[in-house]
Design a protein around this nucleic acid. Structure first.
Lengths: 113, 113
DNA sequence: AACAGCGCTACACAATATGTAGCACTAATA
DNA sequence: TATTAGTGCTACATATTGTGTAGCGCTGTT
């Protein structure tokens, strides 16, 4: 159960629904962060490590394996990068950036009350 | 560090960037699934547990606490439901549903090659 | 030959998740 | 009033996952 694939039982879910496989995949430490940081440009293992605030190599390697296995990340001549699918996924995730800034403001306002 | 709040260091990230807090929050088992399943309608603790494939109460309670603390989920007269912010977030996440179905097909095609 | 940078792996320790049992409470029913 | 059913949880033992540091084997450069 180490690579969450749609159609198969995944961590926490036995239905095999694609959305559940995706939630399992993205619901692992740094998975979203890696996609986020890879979008800028392709890069080497060690640079990616730095972009991800010095994530441990053990974990980075695990996440990369999972994301390669699921066709979201691939290795090119210039290092790791997002696949076509990965870029599509990034585009869906991107709006979270501005939403999170908004969320931040709302939480701060809430604190004043 | 148990409630990931923007502006503070979170699991895996010390920058306090809102997007990192969000990734920490969503990057925990079943966090995305809970938002997904709550959107349909408000519901009780135990019903939510069932919608989430009998997630353990320990974990459900933890996730609910975090999501309440961060103004994404709240408790109404009719049970737990998404806040206004939570609904906005759901709208951003919703497209992942059809993307994941597509992804599923792509992966299956890849296997045939 | 000596170094530097690369992609990793090993391993011990810490934090998180899972699964089962069951408690304290409320409301309805007998 | 005593029982029953449903509720929102908590406790706890076990299993899985993540962290942090050290360092290996490789490729190129000086």
């Amino acid at each position: 159960m180490s690579f969450p694939l749609p159609g198969e039982p995944v961590r926490g879910s036995k239905t095999g629904k694609p959305i559940m496989a995706l939630f399992d995949l993205l619901g692992r430490t740094w998975a979203l962060g890696i996609i986020w940081n890879l979008q800028k440009s392709s890069c080497t293992f060690r640079e990616l490590q730095q972009r991800c605030e010095n994530i441990s190599p053990t974990l980075l390697n695990k996440r990369i394996s999972e994301l390669k296995e699921t066709s979201i990340v691939e290795k090119s001549l210039h290092g790791y990068c997002l696949t076509h699918l990965g870029n599509e996924l990034f585009n869906l995730i991107e709006p979270l950036g501005s939403w999170s800034v908004n969320w931040n403001h709302s939480l701060k306002e809430g604190m004043d009350e």
